[in-house]
Each structure stands twice: as structure tokens, then as C-alpha cells.
Design a protein around this nucleic acid. Structure first.
Lengths: 210, 210, 210, 210
DNA sequence: AATGAATGAGAATTCATTCAT
DNA sequence: GATGAATGAATTCTCATTCAT
């Protein structure tokens, strides 16, 4: 096959990444060999190296993709005017959806990947960069929303906005981890708990944007 | 051949584990070689195998140790009568202390280890068992405390107790992860945020046990 | 499918060889990939295989070309009547020119190639054949010239003619090697030394043919 | 086998180098695999890496050893007072011995190695350094000897001493190369030719030190 | 008990060569 | 004819584990 379309190249790359993601989710980065990915993708080992410089580059690409999708699920890509009550509500709704989606088996597989990315971010500088950006962006947006809500009086002014943003993210991370550990886990219970907490914080909070 | 004392064996084992923990925290499980641990511990590679069946066994032992200590820090080892308001307060105080301790560099190193254990628990069944137990025990206790508090009217009865317990744990996990990623992170901000949330939930909550 | 002219094929082949020669001189046979040659020649890897059976065949062709040119520079292709004093002088002059030409950067690049051919000749039978022929032909001619000169009394009769021919060639090979190693090397010094030696051997020797 | 004597380590290293030298002489650096060396040495591939960082390091060590021995054969390690006629004679004798030794099959194998080192020196900086030093040291000594001889009137003053030294070395290199190419080659012929040349240059030259 | 030399299976990566388009 | 995507065998190097001393 000679010169192939840009489109085809993009598809190929995506196929490889998808195969890698499945392998990584199943066995972890370090226990997955290039051969595994080759087999999973139906391609040869050599070809993979035309798309990725090395295994690390694949991990970085996976991490990048992962956080990208995460951000999109939070509807943070186009936050619009984030000083309106609706903006906060919209993000809150996205956030609860994200937690709810953990009930979905497909999402659970994705989360397996996420947890490994988080651990890998501790040791691989490039993954660290990607993971940090993936979390810092949403955190910044949420911090802004919280500030605005505090100014409007929708949230207690005493709470540090950035700390609160971190806590929201932490809740997601921790619940994702627990879900990854236990496929039987009762999703509804913690979603209710989180919604309840948000309600306690700002009555009517969670309905405003849904 | 002089049989060494049981005592000596225990000490040796602990030394090896400590060396391994340092290596693992520094470089991750998979990037740490037995030789690294031998060098770090000042012992020979061969000797390490008299204390641990293989590398995986060391990881399991590390995970075990890690969660043990975690549980102790929460003052859950001797929960006393967990139906009293004080019991909840004591655990809440331990919990906030745990979050505060993340400001300590030594604790941050430990957290590096923790995050890796969490990821490893996804793939290594024995680590999974240990991690699950390490989290399920505190969770059970907290769930009980929340129940009792709800019965006393100290916490809103609508919140699912087990979901809430999971959320508390998730908050710790997520904040620990974020701390592991960013040594510059402002610990006080998220501690204040968490305390604020607890206060909102139950005014006077956090003072009761401190 | 329009059959391309013979002419075109020859040109192509020469282009590929020239590109290969540049690559080989730069990085050595074994460190040069077909892709390198493809890039250097502006052609595709696949096309190169229409002109050469495999990489080894390119090396052989390069070696062939190299020794061809070498022989031509010695004016040995048409030795005329090599029993005249002039024949010896002409070759001697060509020989000194060859040594002088080592001062030329372009020639130094060529020499890099030569040294590699010499080493490759040790292991690759086909290259061996080519290299041997490339050296044996000039050597035979020189041996004949020396014989004739000895008969004329222009050279000491005690010296073995074939041994002397080998020594002349060895001098070139060794100086070429040393030049390849050291681009700063003082060409004039060794040219003078060689000319001096020739003069000592046969006064008037080197002027006779120039 | 635990902690083993320094002696043993040195021996092992030497064994590996010897095995590598045999393989390299037989098949060339690039066609020799680590497995080949392992098989030839009767050791495992892994062990080789306890003695050499990588394959390149072995090549450098081989080159080092090669030139060391070369220098020793020239009796240059202890040149004594190189301003005496005897010094020149001693080195000249060593030089002729070196040429004569090319008749020895064992030496011919060594020369195979030498030629490859020379080629490798063009591309591998560390080998280059070693090879340059290996040649520059003898060259320096010879240049000094020639100077002294010129001052004594034993050699024509017009010849550039350093150029002459280079030529002597070139003669060795070229004859070694030709010998490597042709095991049938008549060693006596070129030795006689070289001795004749030296005699022509300085009558009585080659006897003075033998 | 203790050592660390030795093993060898396995993993990442490269690259000559083929062949569908 | 021409391309360059695709293959997969080969190679280097690592490292958990064993075991002779």
C-alpha cells in the first residue's frame, strides 16, 4: 500500500491507540508488551513504531486522550459565561453525570486506564504534564465558578474556592478508583451522597442546570 | 550454622521492606529492580529471597504495611463504642489530621507509594485483596458512625451512609493523589474546604472530637 | 507501462549509487539504512530494489565503482608500452598525484568509503573479489614497470619487483587511512617523504614523467 | 558463586574479550551478535553485560588491546635513549619483525581484527580515539628517531621526519591489509622490498639493531 | 547464613525486504 | 513504473531468580 490518505493514517493511529488502551486497561502499562498491542490491533509490531516513537509515547498519547475526553464530559470545553448561576449548574450536572457514568461497564474499563495514568504520572514526566493539565484546567474553571457563586451568595463565602474545587475533583478521583477496584460497587449510593452534599451546600444547586 | 533469632529475622524483614518502600516510592514498582533494593538495604539480592518469595510478595507486603498504618492514623484500630458522638468526632479529627499530614514531606513520600499500590491493586490480585481490605475496614467503621449519627439526628438522614463513607474516603484518596502530583500544593486550602463541608453538614462536627 | 530508456535506467542507477556512497561515507555500511539511501536519493525504498537485488549488491557496486576510479586516476587503464621509462614515470606521477589529491576534501570523503570497502572485503566474498581485482590489476602493472626499470638499470635489481609494487600500494592505502582518520593531517609532508624515497631509489625518477 | 577474586574477574573479562576477538575477526563487528560471543566464550549473554556496558564498549576494549600489543611489538614501550643509532636500529628491527610476523596465521587473524578497527575508527568516536592514540604514539617516537638519525647524518636531511614516520606506518598498515585479504600472499617478497628500501635509505640501517 | 556471579527468558526496537495499490 | 505501508525476523539489553561457594 503506497501513499495512503491522511485520513487513513489518523484512523490507523486511533486503532493502535484503542488497542493499546484495551491492553493497558486489561494488564497495565508495564505488563503490556508491544506484541500484545500488535496482536490486539491485528497489526505488526513494526508498524506501531511508525506511529509512535516508543512505548512511552503511546502511554502519553493515551493519557492525553483520556483527559481530553474527561474534560469534554464535564462540558468544560466551552464554559460560556461562567459567572451565571447556570454555568455552575451545567458543570455540576456534568459532574454528577460523570459520577453516574461510572456505573457503565465501558466507563469502568476507561477508569482502569485512568488510575494507571495517575500512578504513571508520578514517575513519567510527560505523563505528569498531561495529567496535571488534564486536572488543572477543570480545576481552574470550577474555582472560577465557585468564586462567582460565592459572590452571588449561592455558596458559603468562607470556603476557599480553590480548595473546594480540589475536593470536588478528589471526590471524582477517589470514587473512580473505588469503582475500578470493585465492579459490584453501588454507584447510586455515592451519587446520592454527593448530590446530597451539594444540596446541603446550596439548596437547589443541582437542579439549576439540569 | 547459627540460627538467628526470630527478633533478628523480623528486623531484617522490616529493613528490607523499608528499603523497598524507598525504592518503590522513588521509581515505581516496575522500574525498581531487586538490585536496587539490595543496594538500598545494604544486603545481597540473594538474601532478599530468603525473606520474600519474589518481587510481587514484596509489593504485597508493602501494600499491607501501607494500609495498616493508614488505618492506625485514623484511630480505627480501637474504635471503642462507635455509637457515641465522640466516636464520630474522634474519627473525624483523625481524618482531618490525615489530610493535614499531607503537608509533611515524609508523608508525601508515603503517598507516592500509596498511589502506586492503588494502581497495582487493579492488576495484582493479592494487592487488590490487601487494598480492598485496607479501605473496606475504615469504610465499614465510618458507615457505622454515620448511621449512628443519623439516628442521633447529627447528620441528615437522607444521605446514604455507605455512600457518604465512600465519599469521605474518596476525598482523601483524591487529595492524596493531587498532593503526590504537586509538592507545592496548598494543603491548608483543601483542609479548610473539607472542614467547612463537614461543618455545613453538622455544625460543631469537627470540634466535638478534637 | 512506458518502458524507460536504457539511458534513464543507467542514470537512475548512478544516482542511487551516488546517494548510497554519500550515506556510506557518512555513516558506514552497517549504520546506513535503505531508508537513508532512499531519502538521500529522493527515491522510494521500493524503487531501489528494482536496481539492486539487495543492500549487499549496492555495497559491491560501490566497491566496484570505487576501484574503477582509483585505477583510472593511476592512468593504468591504458598503460601504453609499459617497458619505456616514460610509462614508469607516468604511473609514478599519477601515484604522487593520487597522494596529493588526499588533501582535497572531496577525495577525503571518497577515502572514507574506501577504508570501509577494505574492511568489508574481509567478510563479504563479492566485495573481496572486487577489492582484490581493484588492487591486483594496478599491482600487476606496477610490477611489470618495476621489472622493466630493473632491466634498464633504473631500479636496484635486488628488490623483489612484486614486493615493491605491494609496498607502493601499501603506502597509498596506509596514508589514505591516516588521512581518513585525521582531516587536519599535513598532506605535503608525506607527499614529500614519498617523493624523497622515490628519488633516493632512482634519482630523476619522479621528474621523468611529469 | 559469590564474591570472587579480582583475579577471576580479570580472567573472565579477558576470556570474554578473547572470545569476542575471535568472533569479530571471523565475522566482523556488525555481523557478530552478543549471542555469538556468548556461545564462543561458553558464558551467558547476560554475564557479558556485567563486564561491558554494551557491544560498543567491547569493540573499544578490543581496539585498545589491539593497539597495545602492536606498540609492544614495536618495542616502543621503553624506547630508552632514542637519540642513539641503536634506538633506531632496535625499532627498525621490531618493525621488520612486525612485517615478518604477518606470515604467521595467528597474526593474520589478528590483522583481520585490526583492519576492522581501522574502519570502525572512522565512525565510532571512541574507537577513533583509541586508534589514533595507538598510531600517534609510535609515530611520535619514530619521528624522533628519524630526526636524530638525520642530525647524525644517517638519514637524508631533506626528508620530512614526520612524513617519513607516517610512510613507515602506512607501509605496515597497507601490507597488513593486503595480507588480510590474501592468506597466500608472499610475505618474504614485501619484507625484502621494505628491507631493501631501508638499506637504500641508510646502508647498514637494518643490521645495526639486530 | 550470606553472597553476588551466573543464567536465560523476555522485552523493546530496528530494518531489510515485499507487495498491494 | 513507483510508492511507502506493512511485515516479522533478528538483535540488543535487562532483570528476576537461582545456586555454588
Amino acid at each position: 500500500m503506497p501513499k495512503v490518505s491522511e485520513e487513513h493514517l489518523r484512523t490507523r493511529r486511533a486503532e493502535i491507540l484503542a488497542a493499546a488502551a484495551r491492553c493497558f486497561a486489561r494488564a497495565g502499562f508495564h505488563r503490556t508488551t508491544i506484541q500484545d498491542i500488535a496482536k490486539e490491533s491485528g497489526l505488526s509490531a513494526g508498524l506501531i513504531y511508525r506511529y509512535f516513537a516508543d512505548k512511552d509515547a503511546m502511554v502519553v498519547a493515551i493519557a492525553d486522550q483520556w483527559h481530553d475526553r474527561q474534560t469534554r464530559q464535564l462540558h468544560l470545553d466551552d464554559p460560556g459565561d461562567d459567572r451565571t448561576p447556570n454555568a455552575l449548574g451545567r458543570v455540576a450536572a456534568g459532574y454528577l453525570d460523570l459520577l453516574r457514568s461510572l456505573a457503565d461497564p465501558a466507563e469502568r474499563e476507561r477508569v482502569q486506564l485512568g488510575v494507571q495514568i495517575w500512578a504513571e504520572a508520578l514517575r513519567a514526566p510527560e505523563v505528569h504534564t498531561v495529567a496535571r493539565q488534564g486536572v488543572d484546567l477543570p480545576r481552574g474553571v470550577i474555582t472560577g465558578l465557585v468564586h462567582a457563586a460565592q459572590e452571588r451568595g449561592d455558596l458559603p463565602p468562607a470556603l476557599p474556592a480553590d480548595g473546594l474545587a480540589r475536593v470536588f475533583i478528589a471526590v471524582y478521583q477517589g470514587l473512580a478508583l473505588q469503582t475500578a477496584w470493585d465492579p459490584e460497587l453501588d454507584n447510586a449510593a455515592f451519587v446520592d451522597a454527593v448530590r446530597g452534599l451539594l444540596e446541603t451546600l446550596t439548596p437547589g444547586f443541582t437542579e439549576s442546570g439540569t
